[in-house]
Simulated scan of single mutants.
Amino acid sequence: MAFTIGDLSREFGVSLRTLRFYEDKQLLNPKRQGPHRIYSRRDRARLKLVLMGKKVGFSLTEIKEMLDLYDLKDGQAVQLKVALDKFTRQIEVLKQQKSEIERAIEELSRTLAVVDGMLRDREAEAREAAG
């Protein structure tokens, strides 16, 4: 089965420019038919993995490294080991970021309560002065 650049753009909600960028980064390798790009099932699968990898915080370089391991023809054992290691490390990075975000939300919520209280006091003082 073959896909056009427009097919993949619509299916995955990415711009044509993004697909061309991924091609420049050698993440996708469409065939050319004249001026047209024809993407294979393999390109579609790789695009799906690229987008998933970006969503969970991997860089394009890391994604390319993992995708390129598929081409080793070793029964994917090396690729699976590398992926397992990268996924484990990325989970730790995301957990750390989650913890930092939770702390920031708590701090901002406390500050919000203080500022809200100060504003209510000022408004009450203004009403008393006016009334």
Rank of each mutant, 00 (worst) to 15 (best):
K86M: 08
R103V: 10
E107S: 14
K95Q: 13
E23Q: 13
I101G: 03
T18Q: 14
G117W: 01
R120A: 15
G117K: 05
R10L: 13
L119M: 14
M1E: 10
E62M: 07
P35F: 04
R41S: 09
V82F: 07
F58D: 02
I105Q: 11
D116A: 11
M66T: 02
V93L: 05
F3H: 14
R41G: 02
L84N: 09
V78E: 13
E23I: 10
Q33H: 12
V50M: 03
T111M: 15
L119T: 12
L108D: 01
L69H: 03
P30W: 05
A83C: 08
Q76K: 06
D116T: 11
L94D: 03
L19A: 06
G117V: 03
L8F: 09
K86I: 00
K25S: 04
V115W: 01
L72V: 02
Y22G: 02
L80M: 10
R32D: 09
E100M: 12
I101C: 11
T88L: 05
E23M: 10
A104C: 05
Q26D: 13
L8A: 05
T18I: 03
L94I: 11
R32K: 15
R44Q: 11
G131E: 15
G75N: 03
E92Y: 00
L112T: 09
F3T: 08
R17E: 14
R46E: 07
V14L: 08
M118D: 06
Q26A: 14
M52Y: 02
Q26C: 09
T111E: 12
T111C: 13
E125Y: 10
K64F: 00
G131C: 04
E102H: 08
R89M: 07
A77Y: 00
S59Q: 04
K25D: 06
G57L: 07
